[in-house]
Design a protein around this nucleic acid. Structure first.
Length: 173
DNA sequence: GTAACGATCCTC
DNA sequence: AGGATCGTTACA
């Protein structure tokens, strides 16, 4: 069913450097196959911004994997890493501009690999539209938390310019 | 076709 | 500090 507090296209269609910190404090809602509802506050995210960002998968250009990042904001970009873990990203911005925010932490749950495991999210969720889905969406609690900005994790290969960008956003608890 | 390498996590 | 484990990418 549709929630009145659900975040819509307008929220996700802005630049990832606005949307990513804006995701902090929002509820990630996941309806499991058995009907159980998991609702967790987003506490940590990272921004990946455009083809020029060497840490962004879209720096490889438009490929089968990165195609969804070129879509309108609000879609999910889910990919596997290290053969074991699914990373959950939220596509942001306008069509044709590849951006995404990696969900790196939820309240009482840190680590992107753990999050997908706990929420039973896998590759079949790639391309899912958070603005129009019955199994996952975001809700606005109406409050804005303080946050910190630091460097992104695990992207040392990206070169000095990009690995030093303070594009990791964490709720200042 | 092959090979190298991860936006990680767990166990030593 | 090192292993698990496989999709994506680059190159022959």
């Amino acid at each position: 069913m549709f929630s009145v507090k659900r975040l819509g296209i307008d929220f996700f269609s802005r630049d990832v450097l606005v949307v990513a910190p804006g995701l902090l404090g929002k509820y990630l809602v996941r309806v499991m196959n058995d009907g159980t509802v998991a609702r967790h506050v987003i506490t940590e995210v990272e921004a990946y911004r455009g083809e020029e960002d060497l840490a962004c998968h879209a720096s490889k250009g438009r490929t089968r994997r990165t195609e969804i990042m070129y879509a309108r904001g609000g879609h999910l970009y889910v990919y596997m890493i290290y053969g074991m873990y699914w990373m959950i990203n939220i596509v942001t911005g306008l069509p044709g501009d590849p951006q995404a925010a990696l969900i790196r932490g939820l309240q009482d749950m840190s680590g992107p690999g753990r999050i997908s495991r706990y929420l039973s999210v896998d590759g079949s969720f790639n391309g899912l539209d958070l603005t129009d889905s019955d199994c996952m969406w975001l809700e606005d609690p109406g409050t804005v938390p303080d946050y910190l900005a630091t460097t992104r994790i695990g992207i040392d290969y990206a070169g000095e310019n990009w690995k030093l960008k303070p594009w990791r956003f964490i709720i200042n608890a």
